[in-house]
Design a binder for these strands. Sequence first.
DNA 1: TTTATTTGACCTCG
DNA 2: CGAGGTCAAATAAA
Length: 280
Amino acid sequence: MSWSWDTRKAIEELVQGRDWTNQLRDLLTKSVGDESGLVGSEDLVIKICNTFSNTLSILSNSNYNHYLNELCQKPKNNLSCDGRKSEDSGESIKSSPSASALALKDRRGSYKRRKCVASRTNISSALIDDGYAWRKYGQKKILNANHPRSYYRCTHRSEQGCEATKQVQKIQDDPPKYETIYSGHHTCKNALNPCHFFMDQHDSSKLISFSNQHDLPFFSSESKEDYKLASEITYYNGSSSSDYILSPFGPSAEMSVLSADHEGFSGEVDSVGGLDDFLF
DNA sequence: TTTATTTGACCTCG
DNA sequence: CGAGGTCAAATAAA
């Protein structure tokens, strides 16, 4: 696998950032009742911030700039939690298709099938609250898959025209593994304080900051279902052509991978395997 | 009553 | 023609 210099540089920056983050965690753990740890941690925080800044600077000059812009435009707003959710549930008794059902024929089919839309694939060990409100609109049995795929769209699609959608599918039983494919991006203003860092497009020297870390969606819980801490891998499928690693963030997260593959998600696992040099 | 989910029909694309 | 994405009535939950 061959990566551009930018790609390698960004990966190195992120790995360095992770290491410093781990050091910082240790320091903070130690600093409970010990002032000396706090002094060192301040320095580490600056280093870590620089690491992420450098990475994003690199990315902003790369093919991923469009995605970064997308992230930057994401709403950073208030928390409320009504992420309803449901996975495969029991059967529901359906009335048999009757004359009224047949009358639907003419009204259906006024949609276009999605094609080649940039998507992001997230693989996690548990169902994850991504901070947005989703509404389930379908579920399908997928060929050669043990579990059905659920289809969700943004709850605010009707009133705000938000086109974000996601598909969730359990892809492994033991240990459980879930694949979530996100398509489109949120244009709604009612997001539930999604976790994201964002970049100041006008001043990349101080381009990164974290929103309320207590609300990191990957570490929060979702109503109705027992959403657990999840390790995860993320793939981005956009329009450019190399693989990327992002943010192995702390011991509980495995890592995230940016992948750009127009044809679905080919090569994703291989990509992970090829990153061994950077992982522990 | 309102809002969300379930589920079979229907549609598009490869 | 089949797989998979979407629609929308029926149903459940709040």
